[in-house]
């Protein structure tokens, strides 16, 4: 990408980089068109610089990526209200691990955290979350009955958070594919039941960086079901670039807030647009 004159091979290389990073054909071709126009218009040939600029702009460094994790007081009753975070996504993307890591971050900020094991379906899901709770030193609310109502467990977790005057309640949910109507309805119910305690502050959709074009579908359907407020992009420690989030952010208007960089408790970081773009072009 460092040639003086920009030939067709270079444009193909650019297109390949973008498509290879899972940006998708539509967005990649659009971006290449815009680049071509800009370089021609400005009489420039430094493709890489302008490509980086355009990508950073597409990822939008101006978005507010902070998490709503501050406890409040109920305006009518005056009761203590912990911030409630619901973590959702398809199977195996890293929801439970993210809840564990996020709890670690919050504990490091001196917050009192309660975990809710609303995955009552998958084998040993509640045990997995409880292990994370023990690892980072926070209590986990779970049901002892296999197949218990996930909405009831989520409700109980927030109730415990209110009683313990916790700052944040993190609710882990079962993985579900977005084309399963009944499971998406179930997730909607979990959220509505939790809302009896007051509004849910964050709904984090976990997307696996290895995910291809289906990621956009996931984002759409989960957003319709539970109004996603932020994306967590996991498994960025591998070779996958997670380019699908560019289209996801644009379509949903919801920012990527956190990235997962490994399986350990400390492997969660804020999303940095410039770093993300540099890794994408690497």
């Amino acid at each position: 990408l460092s040639r003086d004159t920009v030939d067709e091979t270079t444009w193909e290389e650019v297109e390949d980089i973008l498509i290879g990073a899972d940006l998708g054909t539509g967005p990649s071709l659009e971006l290449v068109d815009r680049l071509r126009a800009r370089l021609a218009g400005e009489g420039r040939s430094d493709v890489r610089t302008v490509l980086r600029e355009e990508l950073v702009r597409a990822v939008d460094p101006t978005l507010d990526r902070s998490l709503a994790v501050t406890a409040s007081t109920d305006p009518t009753t005056g009761a203590h209200r912990p911030a409630v975070v619901l973590v959702v996504g398809v199977n195996g993307v890293g929801k439970t691990t993210t809840v564990g890591k996020l709890a670690r971050v919050l504990v490091a900020q001196d917050k009192d955290v309660v975990l809710g094991a609303a995955d009552t379906f998958r084998a040993a899901a509640a045990e997995q979350l409880t292990t994370w709770g023990e690892r980072v030193g926070v209590p986990t609310v779970r049901s002892e009955t296999e197949g218990a109502d996930p909405a009831a467990v989520a409700y109980d977790a927030v109730k415990a958070g209110v009683e313990l005057e916790a700052d944040v309640v993190l609710v882990d949910t079962a993985g579900r594919l977005q084309n399963k109507r009944d499971l998406m309805d179930e997730l909607g119910k979990v959220k509505r039941v939790v809302e009896r305690h007051g509004p849910v502050d964050e709904v984090l959709l976990v997307l696996d960086a290895t995910t291809g074009q289906n990621g956009l579908m996931q984002a759409r359907v989960f957003s319709e079901a539970v109004a996603v407020t932020g994306i967590v992009l996991t498994k960025l420690d591998g070779t996958a670039k997670g380019g699908i989030v560019v289209a996801v952010q644009r379509e949903l208007g919801v920012p990527v807030k956190l990235v997962g960089l490994g399986e350990g408790a400390d492997d969660l970081a804020p999303f940095e647009p410039e770093q993300f773009v540099d890794a994408l072009l690497d």
């Binding site: 899972d22 398809v90 696996d208 290895t210 070779t239 670039k241």
Partner: peptide
């Protein structure tokens, strides 16, 4: 192999 995987499938 997860059917949802994207472009990284080939390297992986």
């Amino acid at each position: 192999l997860d059917a949802m995987i994207g472009q990284s499938a080939v390297d992986t």
